[in-house]
Nucleic acid binder design. Structure first.
Lengths: 148, 148
DNA sequence: GAAGATAGTCCGAATTTCGGACGTCTGCAA
DNA sequence: TTGCAGACGTCCGAAATTCGGACTATCTTC
């Protein structure tokens, strides 16, 4: 850490945290309680379902930890564990109905925050930001298979 | 959370995490052990020292938690608590020698990672990214007084 | 079909987080 | 000046989180 002036780390983290907090607050306001750790795992779940170990690797957290978090998410009804058709050892963590409802409840706030960003930055910079970040993720994502 | 395709949250978080992990690994390799929570507080400490409550607000974490983390950082010799000349109730958390040494030990890796980014993105996009993020922080930083 | 790797889980201990309640000190108001 | 609301940080203790070790089931390979 450290890099006096414009600390690149914080430059990325501050907006992230802002967005995360807004979205989480919206979900909570709508009755969908969820902790930060839960949210960080939840947001990585693929539309077709993700394996526990994929989530663990992507989030850089041990399998046991993700397992425990998924337990909580499952208990709360946000996700479901379904057998993986390709591998009997594995199970896919999939977003359940209540999880989708939670996402939908927060969607307007998410859109609103992002819209605020677009207004503040202007269309050009906003589009650039998105594009450049997408390129940056190409080389910083540990679990590239998912993003590409 | 959620926003199918290019999830803005992850777009910001993935590179952040990558940088954080690289820097932390470098520090550890040089003998400066530090947990993620510790690092997240540590990186917010101002050059002139920061108050506990400032750190707490900036990092969006209760004072007690930051207090406990600062205890650890202090015990490890990374920071020092000094009286705040302006307010006898407060104390300033300042980076200590060993903390500066830790920063220096990781600096080359930090520079290297950022340089990798610059090479991958190209000078123009790299500069744009930095500039745009700096503008974004203007409206997403909860503790604006610090950054501006 | 035996050996080795991989998916996920169970167990339990260490660590971390943080609400509540306090003691101290400041700064404003009367 | 004195009084007092409010801000600064700390102590205490309970709850939650994290995650190493060890294990079973299953897949892969030779």
């Amino acid at each position: 850490m450290a890099d006096p002036e414009p600390n690149f780390g914080l430059l990325l983290f501050i907006p992230y945290r802002h967005l995360e907090e807004s979205v989480l607050a919206a979900a909570r306001g709508a009755g969908y309680e969820m902790s930060i750790s839960q949210a960080r795992v939840f947001q990585r779940i693929d539309a077709e379902g993700s394996r526990l170990s994929e989530l663990a690797e992507a989030a850089q957290v041990p399998k046991q930890t993700v397992g425990s978090i998924v337990d909580q998410l499952e208990l709360a009804g946000y996700v479901r564990r379904v057998p993986d058709p390709d591998d009997a050892r594995a199970r896919l963590v999939a977003v359940a109905d209540r999880g989708r409802a939670a996402i939908e409840s927060a969607a307007p706030v998410l859109a609103e925050v992002v819209e605020t960003w677009r207004e503040h930055l202007g269309d050009a910079d906003f589009a650039d930001l998105r594009r450049i970040l997408a390129r940056l993720v190409e080389i910083t994502d540990l679990d590239r298979s998912k993003v590409r």
